[in-house]
């Protein structure tokens, strides 16, 4: 069997290539996941490590901007990109769309969740205050991997775990309706889920109906 070239796989990542071969070829799916995962992870480290420091060294006129960026960087509703860059399984669009219901309701194993809290320096997390959230939801091919998990609080901001759940649900529908490439959905949600929400729902603030959206279960 002739396999996809890297160039063809990268075209598929950007929604430009034909996916038919990928659907039926585990070898190419694995290579696709390897390329997409490595580039996403490098991007997270690259983006996570530099912009704040840039402003730190900028002129005094930029001080306010720097403070804003620092606050944004430390906002609890966004994961630390260096600790949680996101990780995916080698799944095709078709596989994601016929995935079992368990992917929609997958909770992180307790030991892994505790590891995540420890990584984020959270001791004795309050029951029902957090969702140990898959940054890239399993319903979009996200992996059960500590690099794909983070403690997302339910309170403290309008950008809650429930709002993110609504985004995940919507992105999966778009992927399965053929309106969005799986790799794009994965990358957008891993890079900045709030920006992705604003982009796909075309709003600056969470929609009212999403404030009470319930999909994933809280940490208990």
């Amino acid at each position: 069997m002739k396999h996809c070239t890297d160039a063809e796989l990268m075209a598929i990542m950007d929604g430009e290539g034909a996916r038919e071969h990928l659907e039926g070829c585990p070898h190419c799916r694995a290579r696709y996941a390897e390329l997409a995962g490595a580039l996403r992870e490098f991007s997270a480290i690259h983006r996570g490590g530099r912009p704040v420091a840039w402003w730190r060294y900028a002129a005094a006129a930029c001080l306010l901007v720097a403070a804003g960026l620092w606050l944004m960087r430390s906002r609890p509703e966004l994961p630390n990109a260096a600790l949680t860059p996101g990780a995916t399984r080698p799944m095709t669009q078709a596989e994601v769309c016929v995935a079992l219901a368990q992917d929609d309701d997958r909770i992180a194993p307790r030991a892994m969740a505790e590891q995540v809290f420890a990584k984020y320096g959270i001791r004795n997390p309050q029951p029902r205050a957090y969702e140990v959230d898959y940054l890239i939801t399993p319903a979009l091919g996200g992996a059960e991997d500590v690099r794909n998990l983070w403690p997302q609080p339910y309170g403290g901001s309008v950008w809650t775990a429930r709002v993110k759940d609504a985004l995940e649900d919507y992105l999966r529908k778009m992927v399965c309706n053929g309106r969005l490439e799986l790799a794009t959905a994965q990358e957008d949600i891993a890079t900045d889920w709030i920006a992705a929400y604003q982009k796909y729902f075309r709003t600056d603030q969470p929609l009212v109906e999403h404030a009470g959206f319930v999909k994933d279960r809280p940490w208990e």
Binding site: G48, G49, R50, V52, A53, W54, R56, Y57, W70, R73, S74, N80, A82, L83, K119, G121
Partner: peptide, 15 residues
Amino acid sequence: EVLDPAPTPEELALL
């Protein structure tokens, strides 16, 4: 190389 000042010392050590 410009390191991000936001992570904690533990995170920096890890990363």
